[in-house]
């Protein structure tokens, strides 16, 4: 969807200390072959702050940078790919109470690693349909420090990092203009991540870790499966990524030759190429691999971490266009095109 008169006025992140891959191998958390093949050099791990507290920190930075007052905001959209506390409790209101502290709608956007892009899309709609509103606060965070998640070995495609990110989407100019945002899904691929797990009673495994990989394997081995099903699914997903990027670039009125950099998800090196970079015909150098490989897959934050890093280090500057690319189970791929409109912040 093409976007007019909407800006990113503030950006904030929280990245905890990182655990070097060598350390993880030495501790026996991951085997050395998998570690080497991943290309990941370190993974961010937060052992003390819950996800919502990391979100509060990122949000404070974004709001301050935006120059907006709490009264300017119409909503808070909060996300996490994993649980952030007990059932029947509102993480968004925890964050709202400790940030804007206003009587706003505060809701969760549950879209896996696409959550922030989808939150941006929803923010555009909220601002367009709420007279007098100027800003939406988007927050996102995950903390996988629980015995029920094996961040090093759960997935063959990624190592899960703890992180938080925040954006202020605004009708007032900021550090970037949002030109287009959108996503496309291939719902026939929904079954992949269900992997034969129970829908009734809803599958819960309090006694053992999450393990996405076995579910994907279960899907690949389901009755009637053919051996190449997973390979075909990955190819179809790559097509989805390429189509979504073409559509979003066209909506933005921006050609590939105007894209300075690409901020994408923090997958391991080979899955990153197979699923995102190669379908886009984009090299790792154009993306954020060199940065994200030092953090791991920061679930809901990858795209914001990448965008902030590119901007703060001067790798993109005023006039440059950045393509944001995300994905989630379902499967769905999403993109946004932003144009940087301010120089990097001065370092104090």
């Amino acid at each position: 969807m093409k976007v007019d008169n909407i800006h990113l006025a503030g950006i904030g992140t929280y990245v905890p200390r990182t655990v070097p891959m060598k350390e993880a191998v030495r501790q026996g958390w991951v085997d050395s072959t998998a570690a080497e093949e991943s290309g990941i050099t370190a993974v961010a791990v937060e052992s003390e702050l819950p996800a919502v507290d990391m979100a509060v920190i990122a949000a404070a930075q974004a709001v301050e940078r935006s120059g907006h007052r709490p009264e300017d905001f119409v909503a808070l959209l909060h996300s996490g790919a994993y649980h952030q506390g007990p059932e029947g409790w509102s993480a968004p209101h925890y964050v709202l109470n400790r940030t804007l502290s206003r009587p706003l709608v505060a809701t969760e956007v549950r879209h896996g690693c696409l959550s922030v892009l989808t939150s941006m899309r929803l923010a555009v709609g909220l601002l367009a349909t709420t007279p007098g509103s100027e800003a939406v606060l988007i927050t996102a965070a995950d903390n996988f420090s629980t015995p029920l998640v094996d961040r090093w070995q759960d997935s063959e495609h990624a190592m899960y990092a703890d992180s938080a990110a925040a954006l202020v989407v605004s009708t007032r100019p900021g550090f970037a203009r949002l030109l287009a945002v959108g996503s496309r899904s291939e719902p026939s691929l929904e079954e992949m991540h269900r992997g034969g797990e129970s829908l009734l009673p809803p599958a819960r495994h309090p006694d053992r870790p999450m393990y996405v990989a076995p579910r994907l394997r279960a899907w690949a081995e389901r009755p009637g499966a053919t051996p190449a099903d997973m390979i075909t699914a990955v190819s179809r997903f790559g097509d989805l990524v390429a189509e979504t990027a073409e559509q979003t670039l066209a909506e933005a009125g921006v050609g590939w030759d105007s894209i300075t950099r690409v901020a994408h998800i923090g997958f391991n090196e080979d899955p990153l190429h197979a699923m995102i970079l190669d379908p886009l015909e984009v090299s790792a150098k154009l993306g954020t691999w060199e940065y994200l490989r030092t953090i791991g897959h920061a679930s809901v934050s990858d795209l914001v971490l990448g965008l902030e890093h590119l901007w703060e280090t001067g790798q993109v500057t005023e006039g440059d266009h950045v393509l944001l690319v995300g994905a989630t189970e379902g499967m769905e791929a999403g993109c946004a095109v932003v144009q940087i409109t301010a120089p990097p912040p001065q370092r104090g």
């Binding site: 390979i231 699914a233 080979d270 190429h273």
Partner: peptide
């Protein structure tokens, strides 16, 4: 699939 990704890489 993951093995094909590694070979390609």
């Amino acid at each position: 699939s993951i093995q094909l990704m590694r070979l390609s890489g």
